[in-house]
Each structure stands twice: as structure tokens, then as C-alpha cells.
């Protein structure tokens, strides 16, 4: 035992997409405050395995807050009480004796795979519908031939910092994917490279987002408040402008 925190965990267990889920309660002891939330789960899983029980399935990979794989809904917040990812949430954010409720992302477009792991391939399909610049390998010209005002470059970078974790969807009462989609639309519309496909991009990505079953945006701002990367809802406003100008414009040549 490494630390002296004792916690009660109420964790969502679900065998697969088709079965019903339920909460299961676990006591975990000897947790150190230097552990990450996922390392606390490692401790619990190690114990379950030693009792020949099935460990709790959850997604994770980089454990550095950048791959966007980890995705726990903790005490009613995606990634828990801090504006960070689950893997970068440390136990010093909790107190010994706490009861912590852990669920998967809840959204129709993110079906549960098992326990806390969900399927987010809908995000990939949104990107495939238009979240790119159509430039084949070898087509590029010299990188410095096109100066980009620093302000635009910085804003584009801030939008591009999205890790695609889906916390925005999990935070939204409508399970809307507007923050995710708009971050990509914004990034590319702020850059000269993105201009040629600007109108078509916004239209196609919004259409795909709707087709995936994500809800409408009612501007509650919950997504921005929970986003571990601080993606701004300014991006949603920017996408709405792109979208409007795309749908009123008559010269759609694609």
C-alpha cells in the first residue's frame, strides 16, 4: 500500500453494447495522492484479477492528456472535477472517504462497448466528410511562400488543440458535437490553405454530424466549461457563420 486514502467507487458495469448495465460498488484502500485516476483504477483492477474477477474495462493510451482515449464520467463531469483529462486527474483532487461515481460517456452516438469504454467512431466519420484540405502528397509549395498572420495562426492552433475525446458531447444535455466539429471547421477556415473548400466543408461536416445522431446545440456552454483543452465556443459561432454563408451562397460548385 502506497498511500492512505480510502475511497468508495460506484462504477458502471456493462458486459457489452447489447446487455443492460448497472452500478457496482468497490472499496479501494491505500491510494496515494500522487496517483492518477487511472492508476487508482489499475490498483483496483490488479486486486480484482487477484480475486479472479473480471477487471473493469476502460479506454486509455498515452496517459499524458493528448491522445484523447481516456473517457470517464466522474461525479457528473466528463473527466471529473478539474478541466483536464481523466489520465491527468490526480488523486490529490479527492479526499479520503469520498464516494466517487464513474460512468461511461453517455450519448446515443457513442454506444457503450464494455463497462467504461465507448465507441466514438462517429467522430472519425465527421472528419472523413470534410475535415481536411484536399492536397495530395507532393502537391505542396514552399512552406514559407504563404505568410499567415500570427493571430490567425495562433487561433487556428488553439482550435487544432482538440484531442477528440468527446467530453464536449458527454457534457452537453443534448449530446451535441458542435464544439468538436466547429474546432476543425474553424482551424481550416482561419488558414489560407483551407479557403478553397471552405463552404463545402462546413456543410458536409454538419450534415454528417446530424446523420450520426448528435443533438442540436442550444448554447449552454457546458462543452467549453468541461473541455480539457479549453477549446472555445467562439469556434461554434465561427462555424455558424461559415455554415450560413455556405447555405446562402449560390455558387456552390461541387
Amino acid at each position: 500500500m502506497e498511500g492512505n486514502m480510502n475511497l468508495t467507487l460506484k462504477v458502471w458495469r456493462q458486459k457489452n453494447a447489447k446487455s443492460e448495465g448497472r452500478f457496482e460498488t468497490f472499496d479501494v484502500k491505500g491510494i496515494s495522492e500522487d496517483m492518477s485516476f487511472l492508476e487508482m483504477f489499475d490498483v483496483l483492477n490488479e486486486r480484482l484479477i487477484s480475486e479472479t474477477k473480471e477487471p473493469i474495462a476502460f479506454d486509455h493510451d498515452c496517459r499524458e492528456g493528448i491522445c484523447g482515449m481516456c473517457s470517464m464520467y466522474i461525479n457528473g463531469h466528463p473527466h471529473g472535477p478539474k478541466q483536464t483529462t481523466t489520465c491527468q486527474l490526480h488523486m490529490r483532487s479527492f479526499k479520503s472517504g469520498d464516494t466517487i461515481t464513474v460512468e461511461p460517456w453517455r450519448a446515443a452516438a457513442f454506444p457503450v462497448i464494455k463497462d467504461l469504454a465507448v465507441n466514438r467512431s462517429s467522430f472519425d466519420r465527421i472528419i472523413a466528410s470534410g475535415g481536411f484540405v484536399s492536397v495530395n502528397t507532393g502537391n505542396a509549395r514552399d512552406a514559407n511562400s504563404l505568410p499567415i498572420p500570427k493571430e490567425n495562426a495562433d487561433l487556428a492552433f488553439m482550435a487544432a488543440a482538440c484531442i477528440g475525446c468527446g467530453a464536449c458531447v458527454a457534457a452537453c444535455k443534448n449530446a451535441s458535437a458542435m464544439l468538436f466539429t466547429s474546432a476543425k471547421v474553424s482551424q481550416l477556415s482561419l488558414l489560407p490553405q483551407g479557403q478553397a473548400e471552405r463552404q463545402m466543408r462546413a456543410e458536409k461536416m454538419v450534415a454528417q454530424m446530424d446523420a450520426e445522431g448528435f443533438g442540436a446545440c442550444t448554447n449552454t456552454g457546458a462543452c467549453e466549461a468541461e473541455c480539457p483543452k479549453g477549446i472555445s465556443i467562439e469556434n461554434i459561432a465561427r462555424m455558424n457563420r461559415e455554415y450560413l454563408s455556405a447555405s446562402v451562397s449560390s455558387n456552390k460548385e461541387y
Binding site: 492536397v135 509549395r141 512552406a143 505568410p147 495562426a153 490553405q193
Partner: peptide, 22 residues
Amino acid sequence: ANIIDQCVAQGVPFARDYGGLL
């Protein structure tokens, strides 16, 4: 050098200075 050109063309937001260059 081609890699940097390709990435910029895709919209990769590398750091730039005030003159807009990389």
C-alpha cells in the same frame, strides 16, 4: 524539406512569428 511543405499545405499550424513566417 518536402515534409514541412506538405504539412503546412494540410493546415498544420506550426509556430509563426509576427511576419507570418515559420
